[in-house]
């Protein structure tokens, strides 16, 4: 079984982002970039399926600028067998990314596509679903448990107030939630080996897809600074303030 894992290069989760001076976008100058944490979970799951003998090949794919190769190398160090970069000079919206991914998936024809439920930069939570629609594949989103059984997958999903287990026919799109697994650290020998693995670069322009943006970013602002808390003298005072000032109780 072949598994394709689309991943994304995002700002490292430890970085406190700021808007650019003109508020036109987030300031990405000299900011540490990393693989989106949900994508790490997707890679980990695919690699575990390979280690368990269920999968035979894991292919990491990303759509982005040339520097996204760094994250593909990380995916290779974590255990992916080869990688594909669909190179684009501009930042793309989820629909354009899904279209590019669908072209790669059509060419590779994997039995399973595992990707993060969302990326921590735009928090769009759209690519997986759009990809399923474009390919006309079944989808199982927010997976916290995956088991493959012949030509179908049983996926436990995290939904409001509980868990739901569904069965999807393969090929299918699965998006990963936080609790699916705990990604490993790449061992040093695997980091060294990653450089020797195949990394194919395909220009997005050759794919014949419409990548024009559907949205316009108007401005990016920091959230309003939170006001400093106060200390109250007594329970009565607290209840009074909750009633009359915060108006959260009556």
């Amino acid at each position: 079984m072949k598994i394709v894992v689309p991943i994304k290069r995002v700002v490292d989760y430890n970085v406190k982002v700021r808007p650019l001076g003109d508020q036109s976008d987030v300031d990405l100058n000299n900011v540490k970039m990393a693989m989106n944490p949900f994508c790490e979970i997707a890679i980990e799951e695919a690699v575990r399926l390979k280690e368990a003998g269920t999968a035979t090949e894991v292919i990491a794919v990303t759509v982005g600028k040339s520097d996204s190769q760094e994250q593909l190398r990380t995916a290779l160090a974590l255990g992916a067998d080869r990688a594909i970069l669909v190179e684009s000079d501009s930042l793309l919206e989820p629909l354009a990314i899904a279209k590019a991914l669908s072209k790669v998936i059509e060419a590779e024809s994997p039995q399973l596509v595992i990707l993060g439920k969302q990326a921590i930069d735009g928090d769009n939570n759209q690519t997986g679903q759009m990809l399923a629609a474009l390919l006309n594949y079944g989808q199982a989103t927010f997976a916290s448990e995956i088991s493959i059984d012949g030509d179908s997958a049983s996926v436990t999903r995290e939904i409001d107030g509980g868990l739901q287990t569904i069965k999807v026919s393969l090929p299918a799109i699965i998006t990963t939630d936080l609790r699916l697994n705990e990604p490993r650290y790449a061992s040093l020998p695997n980091i060294m080996k990653a450089k020797k693995k195949e990394l194919d670069v395909q220009p997005i322009d050759a794919m014949g897809i419409d990548t024009a943006p559907r949205m316009e970013l108007l401005s990016v602002e920091l959230p309003a600074a939170r006001q400093e808390g106060i200390k109250v003298e007594s329970v009565e005072e607290l209840v009074g303030k909750l009633k009359n000032e915060a108006k959260v109780i009556s």
Partner: peptide, 14 residues
């Protein structure tokens, strides 16, 4: 180098 950067990122996170 690319390997040094990846090793650094991984070990720092570890």
């Amino acid at each position: 180098s690319e390997e040094q950067q990846m090793t650094w990122d991984m070990l720092r996170k570890f």
